[in-house]
Design a binder for these strands. Structure first.
Lengths: 208, 208
DNA sequence: CGGTAAATAGCCCGATGGGGCTAACTCGGC
DNA sequence: GCCGAGTTAGCCCCATCGGGCTATTTACCG
């Protein structure tokens, strides 16, 4: 008797991507797609119903994002294996996804061979993150994290608020904001608020 | 005898998207895909070879971007019809694509029915831009354009350079830079360089 | 040839930003 | 009960920024 196929769940809000993945993966003798979902909430339902061996998950989706979805799935099914398949590769995205329990990370513009290889490797439990990604991840872990308040201030900086405006928005003195800003600049390793804003966007710390 | 099919060229650097589109479109009785390309330069070659009725084009691609590719195609084949199919929808993207001669604009997360409908409409020449897009486009047209020099300064602002640094980078006096900055802030309708940076990124005026 | 726009450069000046420093208070952990 | 981190807030000081203004040169367009 043949080996059991890898049972896959596809989660992506892009119709054409779901079709493309389905066409590609259903052609493989050792893979079968048991369900598809176009949103995080739908993904949860489908996962519960089918308990697939492996989930291919887009990160940026309307409504519940990919990272939250992964976390939600793994809260109920700690053994769930999820492979992130996304267009973007900001450090923050990768980090949050792996933090949430993703087993791997692939960009959508990869060819079919590495894609299939990675799916099989993740399923077999032999997948290793690419060295370059691991390096960035290590750097991300080494970097000091922003406190909740600091992240709040940073978001307002990105929105172009002045220190005074941030202060009144948060109900604190301008001096307090200036202190937060100082710490933020220090932690991000930048010199001024403009650099803070752009690197925050670049690293995915704040959504634009 | 049957009506001739719509001969399509697919241009997208994402393999799964090409597969998905091909699967979806080849199922239609009135459509056929004559070629695919994963880059702008490849798209040019395939267009010349097959001269398709309609080209589906991704905008963000490594190497030659979608807008440039459209412009290059239409330089040789002014009658070429190109429908942009992309993930992003910044005003700049839309604007540049239509400026380059695109006939329409679709997001990749659209369902199959509107997608097919739009393809047929563009082919038939009856396609109209959605009112919301047209409105943004009008606004974009009303907005004063940045001069090349101003765009150059804006890019350096986004990189977090100070006026003085921008000056030495461009070989001009700081006062000159300050003048450019003033004009930029005015044209973008913002108050300071941080807002200029974030709105520039948001509108897609500069690439991050 | 005159007008317009871009790019250059200077001036003044008030507002904002950022560095360095101290110092409360609070809360959770050891 | 103390220690550390987070949040709060103040101080001084100077660099940078941004607004308002004028002016020259170049280049293009009608």
């Amino acid at each position: 008797m043949a080996k059991p196929k890898i049972r896959l769940l596809l989660v992506d809000d892009h119709l054409v991507v779901r079709i493309g993945l389905r066409s590609l993966l259903e052609m493989q003798p050792d893979m079968t797609i048991v369900a598809e979902a176009a949103s995080g909430t739908a993904a949860l339902k489908e996962f519960e119903r089918h308990q697939p061996d492996l989930t291919l998950m887009d990160l940026r989706m309307p409504g519940m994002g990919g990272a939250e979805t992964i976390a939600a799935i793994r809260a109920s099914f700690p053994a769930a294996r999820v492979l992130v398949l996304t267009t973007f590769d900001t450090d923050e995205d990768i980090f949050r996804a792996l933090q949430a329990g993703a087993c791997g990370y692939l960009l959508k513009n990869t060819d079919s061979e590495p894609l299939l290889k990675t799916i099989r490797a993740v399923h077999a439990g032999t997948y290793r993150l690419p060295a370059e990604v691991a390096a960035r991840l290590a750097q991300r872990l080494a970097a000091p994290e922003l406190s909740p308040r600091e992240r709040e201030v940073l978001e307002l900086i990105v929105k172009g608020r002045s220190n005074k405006e941030v202060g009144s928005a948060l109900g604190v003195a301008e001096n307090t904001v200036k202190n937060h800003v100082k710490v933020i600049l220090d932690k991000l390793g930048v010199r001024d608020r403009t650099q803070a804003a752009t690197t925050a966007i670049q690293r995915g710390i704040v959504r634009l």
